[in-house]
Simulated scan of single mutants.
Amino acid sequence: MRVAVVTESFLPTVNGVTNSVCKVLDHLAATGHEAIVICPDAGAPSEYAGYAVHTVPALAYRQFPVGLPNPLVQRILTRFAPDVLHAASPFLLGAQGIAAANRLGVASVAVFQTDVAGYTMRHGVGLASSIAWRFVRWVHEGADLTLVPSSASQADLEAAGIPRLARWGRGVDLVRYHPNNRFTQATRALRELLSPDGEVVIGYVGRIAAEKQVERLRSLRGIPGIHLAIVGDGPYVPVVEKELRGMPVTMLGRLGGADLAAAYASFDIFVHTGTEETFGQTVQEAHASGLPVVAPRAGGPIDLVEPGIDGYLFSPADDHDLRASVAALAADAPLRRRMGEAGRRAVLGRTWESVCEELVGHYERVIVDRVLSVGDPLNTLV
Rank of each mutant, 00 (worst) to 15 (best):
Q113Y: 10
R2N: 11
G222Y: 06
I76N: 01
Y204T: 10
E353I: 10
S108H: 07
R337G: 11
H287W: 13
E357Q: 14
A95K: 04
A295R: 00
S266R: 03
D144G: 06
L72S: 11
A81I: 11
D197F: 10
V368I: 12
G311Y: 10
R137M: 11
C39I: 09
E215S: 15
P248I: 00
N19S: 13
V84F: 01
A210G: 15
L304N: 00
V116S: 13
L174Q: 14
R323P: 08
E215G: 14
Y48W: 14
R79P: 05
L127V: 14
A95V: 02
Q63R: 15
L165T: 00
A286P: 06
R345V: 03
A101L: 06
A132G: 09
S46C: 11
V293I: 05
D115Q: 07
A117L: 01
A189P: 09
N70F: 08
A265H: 09
T275I: 12
F10R: 06
I309Q: 12
T273M: 08
R338P: 10
G94K: 00
R134F: 08
G50K: 12
A87Y: 04
Y119C: 06
P334S: 11
V271G: 03
A30W: 15
V106W: 00
L255D: 03
D115A: 08
S325R: 08
R218E: 13
R370A: 03
S354D: 13
R79W: 09
E364Q: 14
V326A: 05
R122N: 15
R75C: 08
P71D: 05
A100M: 01
G67H: 08
L28G: 03
V239I: 11
G198M: 06
V6R: 03
M1R: 11
A258D: 15
N102E: 05
L228C: 08
G105I: 06
A117Q: 01
N70K: 03
L304S: 02
N180E: 15
D233P: 05
H320F: 13
S354Y: 12
A107K: 02
S9N: 15
